[in-house]
Design a protein around this nucleic acid. Structure first.
Lengths: 241, 241
DNA sequence: CAACCTCTTATGTTGGACATATAAATCTGC
DNA sequence: GCAGATTTATATGTCCAACATAAGAGGTTG
């Protein structure tokens, strides 16, 4: 009944499994029947069941451990992050907008940070910033750069904000990677970071906004204005793997 | 450290394909190499490639047609809807996450809107808001509610923001649907909207944040707090497509 | 030129095979 | 009798080979 005509076997299997979850009222932690059981249960190949599971895993709903089976999880947050970062890969030219988005959030951080951020955190930011200057590869530099900003965002103590920043992580890191190969630009970044930290120390709102704005603008310099100027030669990527 | 760990072959394949998309600068409409080609290209089984494709399909990034192959698509909206509709089967607090995301974005909108939003847009928002009060069905009301918020988000002129909001549309609308059946709540929404528009007219940052916060909080009132409350009200999501 | 037919190609699905991880059962030494 | 080591059983992870099916490509015929 639920099979809508041209639905593929694995789509049907997804629905079947979903129905199973509903009917049994399963929640996080419960384990689904094994692939083999589901295969015979709904008369399909184990491979079909596996492909269906892939969908569940992509949605962050299930996660399979060997010997145990597939257990229901609550990872939709992560799934959302992946979905977004994937979407960004496709709909290109989003870089400028992303930077605008960062401006939206990070430049407004001051009110949250002021009086809340600890001296330790500020020192930590200093330390991170220093190591950026010593980074040997662009990847390392952009990674540290991201850590610097993330630290600041985390210090705001807003869970949603932190999660969103994590969600955009791959995109932001990619954004940061641009231009990091030039020593000069790297030094500029470090200097700007220092200004930002100092503004926080002095609790100087104007200075914070000024330097943050400048910093985010500078990050845009190395982004091609439009289309696909992608050199593509340096892409070591391999974030997961 | 989150993306490292044990990488299965298909996870690796997902990354490979993703890298391919990036390196070739592929966008919507382009077709990926065939399963067989990818299999030999990255030295894996065709089945592994297929499972990787399942992930892409789940994210709404690709869609495969026979003979042609897998073409890149832009179905994130549908993917998001499915993701949440699925997550709702497991746990309810998926809604809270979204509302948190809205708080992050919409409450920070002010700086982007201030000075940029036109009088016409504000009038349009007023008109929309008025029609919410006249809506006869909860569906109509929540639809108009969404339009109201979308109009405001669009006025910010940030593409990523707009796209994100569009992606979340089905979820947000469903979120808005809750509580809309009560006349009283509906009137509250209209009043809050009016406050928000007025804050924008007066370019009053404090008022904007205050009313927006209040508004978003109110929206959460009708969402069951936790666990498997299973109010039965969420059965509306049918799988068909 | 258009309608029809065949051919080729790539996906969709299946069954079976083997490797690997791991919970559970069994065995060992004290 | 029990803690720790070892084996066993089971379910996932990956691969291969095969066939079915859909759909574009191209040729044939009226």
């Amino acid at each position: 009944m639920e099979d809508g005509g041209r639905a593929s076997a694995v789509d049907g299997m997804v629905q079947h499994i979903r129905g199973l979850i509903r009917d049994r009222g399963m929640t996080v932690g419960d384990v689904l029947p094994s692939e083999g059981e589901l295969a015979v249960m709904f008369d399909a190949s184990r491979n079909t069941v596996r492909e269906a599971f892939r969908t569940l895993k992509a949605y962050g709903v299930a996660e399979s451990r060997q010997k145990v089976g597939a257990v229901l999880t609550d990872q939709h947050q992560t799934a959302m992050r992946d979905l977004f970062s994937f979407a960004m890969d496709i709909s290109v030219d989003a870089f400028r907008d992303i930077q605008g988005y960062r401006r939206l959030t990070e430049m407004n951080l001051f009110d949250l940070l002021d009086g809340r951020i600890s001296k330790d955190t500020l020192s930590e930011m200093d330390a991170l910033n220093a190591s950026i200057g010593k980074a040997t590869t662009p990847e390392e530099a952009s990674d540290l750069d991201f850590q610097f900003h993330r630290l600041m965002v985390e210090a705001a103590g807003n869970r949603t904000l932190s999660e969103t920043y994590g969600m955009l992580k791959p995109v932001i890191r990619r954004l940061m990677l641009a231009g990091k190969s030039q020593r000069l630009a790297l030094e500029g970044v470090v200097a700007e970071h220092a200004d930002i930290v100092q503004a926080l120390r002095k609790a100087d709102r104007i200075a914070f906004v000024y330097h943050m704005n400048r910093h985010l603008d500078a990050g845009l310099e190395f982004i091609p204005t439009a289309g696909r100027g992608d050199a593509g030669s340096n892409t070591g990527m391999e974030e997961g793997r």
